[in-house]
């Protein structure tokens, strides 16, 4: 799906999320001179076109009692990456699953998954169970627990103002 300038305007004002008002889409549209119907129509199209993956309440795991999270990184050879990625990406314990370029020798890992749990122990156990069940335990992997959150907010795709 190709995004128009109007779509990008809408994406840009949506980065902060909806205001908690009875007609939030109307309020969002005001900032970019877009009517409520157009906002809703474009959002539906963006969702159907796969640009918006989900639209809803974005929760913070930590505040819900999921105090432990590990970025679990796997050294998966290139020829197996796609199959292993799809397999882990479909697991209920996994909340993110991306392939990224390995940077050897310092960083050999090619597949990144995120696992949340109420404690470090439950995350370690969940990863061990997952690795065994999905047949990926033989790939070298590491758990990188987060020990401190310095910043967490939504991605901002602000467009720089075009020169007049």
């Amino acid at each position: 799906m190709e995004l128009s300038d109007r779509d990008l305007d809408l994406v840009s004002v949506l980065c902060d999320g909806l205001p908690l008002a009875p007609r939030p889409f109307q309020a969002v549209g005001v900032a970019i001179g877009m009517g409520e119907d157009e906002v809703l129509g474009r959002l539906q199209a963006l969702q159907q076109g796969g640009v918006i993956r989900r639209f809803g309440v974005i929760v913070r795991h930590h505040e819900l009692g999921y105090r432990a999270n590990a970025m679990v990184v796997w050294e998966v050879p290139a020829d197996a990456l796609s199959a292993v990625g799809r397999r882990l990406g479909a697991c209920p314990e996994v909340t993110l699953c991306y392939s990224r370029p390995p940077r050897p020798p310092a960083w050999p890992y090619s597949l990144f998954t995120m696992v949340h749990g109420k404690s470090r122990g439950t995350v370690e156990e969940a990863v061990a169970v997952l690795a065994e069940r999905e047949g990926v335990a033989h790939y070298r992997h590491e758990l990188l627990f987060s020990t401190r959150r310095f910043k967490q907010c939504g991605a901002r795709y602000q467009r720089r103002m075009a020169a007049e």
């Binding site: 799906m1 995004l3 779509d7 990008l8 994406v11 949506l14 980065c15 902060d16 999320g17 909806l18 908690l20 008002a21 009875p22 939030p24 959002l43 963006l46 796969g50 640009v51 918006i52 993956r53 989900r54 639209f55 809803g56 309440v57 974005i58 929760v59 913070r60 505040e63 819900l64 991306y98 990224r100 990144f112 967490q152 907010c153 939504g154 991605a155 795709y157």
Partner: peptide
């Protein structure tokens, strides 16, 4: 509205809005 405001203030909700598919409307890296 009141419940969502309370959950936002407590930090349980970070926002109500869209999760964009990466690289469809911008660029990012880890």
């Amino acid at each position: 509205l009141a419940r969502l405001a309370r959950l936002s203030e407590a930090g349980v909700i970070s926002r109500i809005g869209a999760v964009f598919r990466p690289h469809r409307c911008g660029h990012s890296t880890l």
